[in-house]
Design a protein around this nucleic acid. Structure first.
Lengths: 124, 124
DNA sequence: TATGTATTTAAGTATTTGCTTAAATAAGAA
DNA sequence: TTCTTATTTAAGCAAATACTTAAATACATA
């Protein structure tokens, strides 16, 4: 397991202990936030999120058509994001429309703006 | 393949075509941004990034000790982030210190602030 | 030079993720 | 009720990812 293997002379024991405390205190937050970011860190889901940001609401069928992907595959992506509260749904007869939740629209806004300006590939 | 299967009567053809255009125009940006976010969307890497945000610089050995993980595993995470320009290195004798690049420190700041306040689990 | 320390890299394995296919559920219309 | 449309769910497979172990590289010092 190689734990506590940092034996270099200059190692700052206080710093390491402070960091260990931080990690154990915030451990659940790290997991939760990382899980949320991993949902956004998939190009299919990022496209869905951005399209919902621009169009306000879309159904599985629309997204399947737009992205050229299987309805089932899209549905499974949507479910993951709904489960994690990135998305919410409203039913309109047989059609279920997905939209961004207000809190995630706000949180993801800086990224959407980068995409809006299509500046990603130049600035990062 | 089930493409162009969105045949519901209310489907807004103009909206769908507009979305298709957006996706094809921004396709590389989506991939690039999603790839960057997927690096952050891993709890080990998120911890590393946050620790570097707080401590300014740490070496593989420190991080291995703090996170209780194999040095090799940490080194491989660091490499991925350095390759994608989230991190930079400076050598100090035999020790290689990693730190956040200025642009990603800025980009990730809102998330670090949430962690700082340890408000993740309450507010999201 | 040889030895020790710090780190990276390569190869293999195990887990996770995304997509496909097929079946199931849900709602409206005939 | 039966048929059609819209969507979700379950099961299986293939690709991607994270971690382990062992070997390699890089630098410092005796």
């Amino acid at each position: 397991m190689e734990k506590n293997s940092c034996i270099r002379q200059q190692a700052d024991i206080e710093q390491i202990n402070r960091c260990k405390d931080t990690v154990s205190e915030l451990n659940d937050s790290f997991d939760y936030l990382a899980n949320g970011l991993s949902l956004v860190g998939n190009s299919v889901r990022l496209k869905i999120l951005y399209l919902l940001f621009e169009e306000k609401r879309l159904c599985v069928c629309d997204l399947s058509d737009i992205l050229g992907m299987n309805i089932s595959a899209i549905s499974q992506h949507l479910r993951k994001m709904k489960d994690r509260n990135l998305l919410e749904t409203e039913r309109d007869a047989q059609t279920i429309f997905y939209s961004l939740t207000a809190e995630y629209e706000k949180m993801l806004n800086p990224f959407f703006e980068m995409l809006d300006k299509n500046k990603i590939l130049e600035t990062i």
